[in-house]
């Protein structure tokens, strides 16, 4: 059997600041197979974006990958020379950012940017590159792609810009796409369109997708597997229906309880008390301990990641056992 598209093993990405070492990603492991969608869920500061950046080799000083392996189709990306990484990035691995203007250059026409992307990785004529760019725009549902190619980014609406960014990510039919909150800034009806494109893409071309988001409702309908991050660590992971219907970690349980649609109208939401701890001085042991209703003395020891079933893991010493009432 060929290796999975992506296998992340014990990844540690730390930022060495004057105030101390920030362990933004601390011992994160997961696997994404061909054509599958992994939902990487967490709140701000949980390390989900830094995980995505680490895979693409985009972590800048003072941050660096302090340990672990990132195996892309069996090849370790950690420590890969810059030139080799550039050959992969934008070609076999692509990223979609929350703000499409991170991808797009505001002073260049769309066609210039797309042709440049095609020619960066393949020796093709300008005409053929333009043809590829046009097809990609059509694929993400942009009407009259020939005319739109000649437009500048500011002439597009937010949803259309995000589509262009997705089209650029698709140009080389990558094997892996890391999408960092790509629909958070978009309206509900536009978000639905983008999610539809993402689903079609994985089903048709076998692209593996990592969908980073804070919104459990989005990944509930999209992902095959979920990994929930808290304070730099994955606290729970497994198939989407198992994680959402029978969560093991108290944090996951709290997150699900915080979603308004799961609660009865007008009744108080089951909130998580307190707030996310500062990454600079994390408490020893379980980082969720201070907010956890089930915390006890043993939680001051770092809890190990325990496997409850094949592919079903949680980092808690007293996991929640029962299924949630619908």
């Amino acid at each position: 059997m060929s290796p999975p598209t992506l296998e992340v093993r014990n990844l540690r990405t730390h930022f060495f600041t004057r105030a101390g070492v920030v362990k933004a990603v601390d011992d994160v492991s997961f696997t994404v197979a061909r054509g599958k969608v992994l939902g990487l869920v967490g709140e701000s500061g949980s390390g989900k974006t830094v995980t995505g950046f680490s895979i693409l080799g985009l972590v800048d000083a003072p941050g660096r990958i302090a340990g672990g392996r990132i195996l892309f189709q069996g090849q370790d990306l950690v420590g890969l020379p810059d030139a080799a990484m550039r050959r992969l990035r934008g070609n076999r691995i692509a990223m979609i950012f929350q703000d499409p203007m991170m991808t797009l250059n505001p002073v260049l026409r769309i066609d210039t940017q797309m042709i440049e992307t095609v020619q960066a990785h393949q020796k093709v004529s300008r005409e053929e590159a333009r043809q590829r760019a046009r097809d990609a725009l059509g694929q993400v549902g942009i009407p009259s792609p020939d005319e739109r190619l000649r437009a500048y980014p500011h002439q597009f609406s937010g949803g259309m810009r995000q589509r262009v960014a997705i089209a650029i990510a698709l140009l080389h039919k990558p094997d892996l796409i890391v999408a960092d909150e790509p629909t958070t800034a978009l309206d509900v009806t536009i978000q639905g369109q983008i999610l539809a494109e993402a689903q079609k893409l994985c089903a048709q071309s076998g692209t593996a997708l990592i969908w980073i988001t804070h919104d459990l409702s989005v990944v509930a309908g999209l992902a095959d597997d979920i990994a929930v991050m808290y304070a730099g660590k994955v606290v729970e992971q497994g198939p989407v229906e198992q994680v959402l219907d029978a969560p093991l970690h108290p944090y996951t349980l709290g997150l699900i309880g915080s979603v308004p649609s799961r609660n009865r109208r007008g009744e108080p939401l089951r909130q998580i008390p307190g707030m996310t701890p500062s990454m600079l001085n994390l408490p020893a042991g379980c980082a969720f301990r201070a907010r956890c209703p089930r915390a006890e003395a043993r939680c001051a020891e770092p809890p190990p990641m325990a496997e409850h079933a094949p592919g079903r893991l949680a980092r808690c010493i007293h996991p929640h056992g029962e299924a949630l009432a619908a």
Binding site: T189, Q191, A196, Q199, G221, L222, V240
Partner: peptide, 24 residues
């Protein structure tokens, strides 16, 4: 109706997203 159909719901599993056609 279109708006309600597009709201991602945590109860939904592997649903097919459709999307209202066109833009605002």
């Amino acid at each position: 109706r279109a708006l309600l159909a597009e709201v991602p719901r945590i109860e939904a599993r592997k649903r097919a997203f459709a999307g209202v056609k066109g833009e605002i």
